[in-house]
Amino acid sequence: MTNRYKSVFDIIGPVMVGPSSSHTAGAVAIGRAGNKLFGGVPRKLTVHYYGSFAQTHRGHGTDYAIAAGILGFDTDDLRVPNAPEIAKKRGIDIRFVEEDGPSPIDHPNTAILDMSSGTKKAQISGCSIGGGSIEIRHLVIHDTEITPTGSLPIIIWLDYEKEILNEQNLTSLLQEKAPFSKKRIFHTKDCNIYEYDVENYLKPALVKELKEKFENIICL
């Protein structure tokens, strides 16, 4: 089993509202990753499609899947097909753009999500690699570009206090419970951004522990 597929469920696909694991379930997952990165539902979302996504998004349900993910719905949520209408009723502006040319992240099933609420902005570039699995290949947060070096999961921590001891505590905890292949630090005027490319899926109990101990932590 390659490092792209970390469990048998990555191969047989998720429990989902269809029709396609790549174009629907994978798109929900990209939308959910956007929701996590943004820290909730943005007021405005522009989705840029490339490759196969640009050609088939309407027929394969990619539009409502992305909308469902950005709302935080799971792949098997029966509200998935109605997500665009639900988003509209909540005052969320969602637009879909079919882009020409190759994917900026070099994959035929590419969606780039530009998210904003007032002055808050973020961007996430994801691709669906099959069986409902995705890769996040580029992020922009706090005007900082981040290009992960591996597949999911990815942990991002926005350290507004800029306390080295907090970073040491987080790194030690991850070394013990969630080994990572890469760690990078980005310095901005508002915060230090720590990005960890984690080797294995995070157990729900660990995600809960991380969120309890460290504010502004994002587990993709």
Rank of each mutant, 00 (worst) to 15 (best):
G61Y: 03
G40E: 03
E85H: 12
I134P: 05
I86V: 14
G40A: 04
G69I: 15
L174H: 11
A27W: 02
C219W: 05
R137E: 07
L220R: 06
G18R: 11
D77A: 08
P179A: 09
R90K: 15
L139D: 02
S103I: 00
Y194T: 02
L220W: 10
N169H: 10
T149D: 14
K44Y: 05
D93S: 10
I185D: 05
N3W: 08
P42G: 02
S52A: 09
S20N: 11
T119Y: 01
I70F: 00
L202H: 06
T147W: 07
A54N: 03
H60R: 07
T2V: 02
F186Y: 15
R43T: 01
Y50P: 01
R4Q: 08
D114W: 05
I193A: 07
E209H: 11
Y5H: 10
K203E: 14
E85L: 14
L113H: 09
E99W: 02
N109Q: 07
D197K: 04
L158A: 09
P84M: 11
G40H: 01
R184I: 11
D10G: 03
K203R: 10
S22E: 14
D159G: 09
E215D: 15
Q175P: 00
I30G: 08
S103V: 00
F53P: 00
V28H: 08
E98Q: 07
I217C: 09
H57I: 06
G59V: 00
F96S: 02
K36L: 13
N3D: 13
P108Q: 12
N169W: 06
F186S: 09
R43F: 01
K213C: 01
G72T: 12
C219H: 04
P81E: 14
I30E: 03
L45R: 03
I146D: 10
L45E: 01
A65S: 12
K203G: 05
V198G: 04
